[in-house]
Design a protein around this nucleic acid. Structure first.
Lengths: 103, 103
DNA sequence: GCATACAGTTCAATATTCCCGAACTATTAA
DNA sequence: TTAATAGTTCGGGAATATTGAACTGTATGC
């Protein structure tokens, strides 16, 4: 099974981070993770209608951007925000984005 | 000649703004405009090698995101940042992005 | 005036990226 | 060991992005 690779935050370029956040579905998931600590993939989904493969791709992108960490627990993949690491790499960015979300 | 349409900032969704900033070329142009006040299209270009049509498209996208205003002066198109308007719509966002640029 | 250069846009074709159904893998439950 | 669950990967069509070529409108030179 996939043991995911998580990038070091210093290797994440700003463009990639912004691109990851520049999508309503992904941003919604990040916002949810910011409020909820730990979520399985399906629980992190922004809505019921989104296909599994699409959801999986979004989460892969969020991983690549250094925004989330995914670990396997049983048959679930548990996702958490890499909040402090991300904030260390891009100070103030996530706060600003989340503060302007759904406003 | 094209008299450009500039959106009201309240009509700009966050995704669109982030998408506009999530590109090295466009972000470079925004950073330059933040430092330079007024720039023609070619002066705003992030490098010499970028084709004119690509540059024109990037600027169109920045306009659609409410980030820049373009007005014709003679045969040049002069671009300026809509800084205060953008900041009013998305407080702290542009500051955070620019502060994390080229770091 | 008329031709030429210039600044940038628009168009259309190519190249890239994204989305999602279908098939697959691994883990748990019966 | 069979079936169900949770999610990944693959592949092809849809949507976007890039860019050369043709075009528009403005200024300059003769």
């Amino acid at each position: 099974m996939p043991r995911f690779t998580h990038p070091r935050l210093e290797d994440v370029p700003l463009d990639l981070a912004l691109h990851a956040l520049a999508d309503p579905n992904r941003l919604g998931m990040v916002a949810r993770l910011a409020a909820t600590e730990r979520l399985s993939c399906s629980d992190a989904a922004p809505c019921d209608s989104i296909p599994k493969s699409t959801l999986s791709n979004h989460l892969k992108l969020l991983r690549a951007a250094g925004l989330i960490e995914t670990t396997q627990v049983g048959r679930e993949m548990i996702n958490t925000l890499r909040r402090s690491e991300f904030d260390g790499r891009f100070p103030g960015l996530l706060d600003a984005v989340l503060a302007n979300n759904s406003g």
